[in-house]
């Protein structure tokens, strides 16, 4: 049986409960190729069921909801399978399985979680703000995983009272700090009026980047390993 769910936590937990006895269950939140004769269920989130499942799973591993929240943000194709196997594994062992690296389901989840963690860490460095005429900062991003709101606390901590927007242009949403509150909002296009000095600072940054390099020691492969090309799109020094 194929279980479609909407990618939310509640709907995942409902699907998890519904599919529990089904050995052939496939869970998916995305379009997928149906083979002939495969039965499908469209799971409707059931708050009561979800809450019960959450309480049970929490009793097994008090950190597992954090894992769920992160994994639901994964942009990987295999995400739903990884999730289902990980939570089934948790239920089957009745104890945290995070460190059972010899068990496939636990290891897969660990790998997926680390990937998301790596991207969050990277984005803290690779986000590039531009200054708007209003003084607010605007950064377009396009991360592999749905993480722009997780960057809010980090940038709030350092930018003080300056309002800023981190715009996930692919997912058409934005993490916003308006000077008082932070929130997430849908955002398609954005029209930006740059501050008078913006171009000059950007040029100085490009100059800095070029000057600090040691050309006789070229190691492009290493550079690309640490800073994959897909992130260059919004980095002025790489354009």
């Amino acid at each position: 049986m194929i279980y479609f769910y909407d990618g939310s936590k509640e709907s995942f937990l409902t699907a998890f409960v519904l599919s529990y006895g089904d050995g052939d269950a496939t869970l998916t939140s995305r379009d997928c190729q149906l083979s002939l004769g495969q039965e499908t269920v469209f799971v409707k989130a059931d708050p009561a069921r979800a809450a019960k499942a959450e309480a049970r799973l929490n009793a097994i591993d008090s950190h597992c909801m954090r894992d769920l929240d992160l994994l639901l943000r994964s942009g990987e194709k295999q995400r739903d399978g990884v999730l289902l196997r990980y939570f089934r594994c948790l239920a089957a062992y009745g104890r945290p399985v995070r460190d059972m690296y010899q068990v496939d389901a636990a290891r897969e989840a660990d790998r997926a979680l680390r990937k998301i963690g790596t991207e969050i860490h990277r984005m803290k460095g690779f986000v590039r703000f531009m200054e708007c005429a209003s003084g607010a900062l605007y950064a377009p991003v396009s991360p592999d995983n749905d993480i722009c709101d997780l960057l809010l606390p980090h940038f709030r901590g350092r930018l003080g009272s300056i309002p800023f927007v981190i715009h996930d242009v692919s997912r058409r949403k934005a993490a916003v700090f308006d000077g008082e509150h932070s929130f997430v909002a849908p955002l398609g296009g954005a029209e930006i009026v740059l501050s008078a000095d913006e171009e000059n600072w950007r040029d100085l940054w490009k100059r800095y980047y070029a000057s600090v390099n040691i050309p006789s020691r070229e190691r492009l492969k290493q550079m690309r390993g640490y800073m994959p090309v897909r992130y260059w799109r919004f980095m002025p020094e790489k354009r």
Binding site: H121, R158, Y209, E218, M223, Y226
Partner: peptide
């Protein structure tokens, strides 16, 4: 951040990488 801009990030953070493979963290 004591009421201005910036704070320390204990793990450290790379902001870019130059073609020589080195990390750009500080100016």
């Amino acid at each position: 951040n004591g009421g201005g801009i910036g704070n320390g990030f204990a793990e450290g953070c790379c902001h870019s990488f130059t073609p020589d493979g080195r990390c750009v963290s500080l100016l």
